[in-house]
Nucleic acid binder design. Structure first.
Length: 282
DNA sequence: ACACTGCCCTGCGAGC
DNA sequence: TGCTCGCAGGGCAGTG
């Protein structure tokens, strides 16, 4: 499940390789819907001949910036994989889209579940995306104070809020469970009930789990790969995600982890280390 | 505005 | 062996 660290890992692995390359052709395979509302002809008209000016990231979105100020917005969703490969390399099993480059290589998008999208976009669309997403958690805009101010306005479970990309951009199910465990906050706690001390440790936990994720080049439980097709190693750093459904012991206290559903997402936590408190007690 | 639900999509593993 | 079923979940539309 690509979240901020995974998308950043892809961005870094693509940046030096793609910058300055031009796009010679666009091809789709069995699923033209990968382009969203665009037809292949429209995508060709917008992209072929363009030079790649750089690769940026906003939340879980990857943006391929082009020399005419337009771009391509890529979202990997659950199983999307963006790789740079030789033209002669055999296509991946779930290959959906190819961008042929001027150096003989191809940028390829594979996606088992067809949730991911590769969207040609104008500058206005890229700006609109930027505007509707919350702050970048690794930017200076994200502070314990700004997090607390956000939480005070909302009554939804803290986990739901952290998953809301309009509130904070880039967190997904894995890093939210990990951050809440490290901050010792029950995922069902009402956001408004989180204390300022808890918000401070939550802020710290979010930043730490994201930086660790990037340092270990992403979490590759299943399909995630970087642009070279390499797995990440951050799955070995995780201590709660996915462990509640097997009742594995908490690394801190040894109690069996629990699994509940919040916002339709499987949620693992330690009921002993993360006790539920309904109201603020400061 | 906010909170919440259902939908999309397919492979995989468990259970029978 | 082969079937069914539940599960994985990000973003968005729809509802209250």
């Amino acid at each position: 499940m690509p979240e901020l660290p995974e998308v950043e890992t892809v961005r870094r692995s693509l940046e030096s390789e793609l910058t300055g390359r031009s796009i010679r052709a666009i091809r789709v395979t069995d699923f033209p819907g990968v382009l969203g509302p665009s037809t292949v002809e429209e995508a060709e008209a917008r992209l072929v001949g363009r030079v790649i000016a750089g690769i940026s990231r906003r939340g879980k979105y990857l943006i391929i910036d082009l020399d005419d100020e337009t771009g391509v917005i890529v979202h990997l969703r659950m199983t999307g994989v963006l790789t740079l490969e030789s033209r002669t390399a055999p296509p991946a099993r779930f290959h959906r889209l190819t961008a042929e480059l001027d150096d003989g290589r191809e940028l390829r998008f594979a996606d088992q579940r067809k949730f991911g999208r590769v969207l040609p976009a104008g500058r206005d669309e890229i700006n609109a995306l930027d505007a509707r997403l919350g702050p970048e958690p690794l930017s200076r805009d994200f502070t314990p104070e700004s997090l607390l101010a956000l939480l005070r306005k909302r009554t939804a479970p803290i986990k739901s809020l952290l998953l809301d990309q309009h509130a904070i951009a880039g967190l997904g199910n894995i890093y939210v469970d990990e951050a809440l465990f490290r901050a010792r906050i029950h995922p069902r706690t009402s956001a408004a009930a989180v204390t300022s001390a808890e918000a401070e440790s939550l802020h710290d936990a979010i930043v730490r789990v994201l930086l660790a994720g990037i340092e270990h080049r992403g979490t590759s439980f299943d399909s995630f790969r970087d642009a070279y097709g390499m797995r990440g190693e951050n799955q070995h750093q995780l201590v709660v995600y996915g462990r509640g459904n097997r009742g594995l012991p908490c690394v801190d206290c040894g109690a069996p982890l629990e699994r509940i559903i919040i916002s339709g997402r499987g949620t693992s936590f330690c009921a002993a280390c993360q006790p539920l408190r309904q109201t603020r007690e400061e």
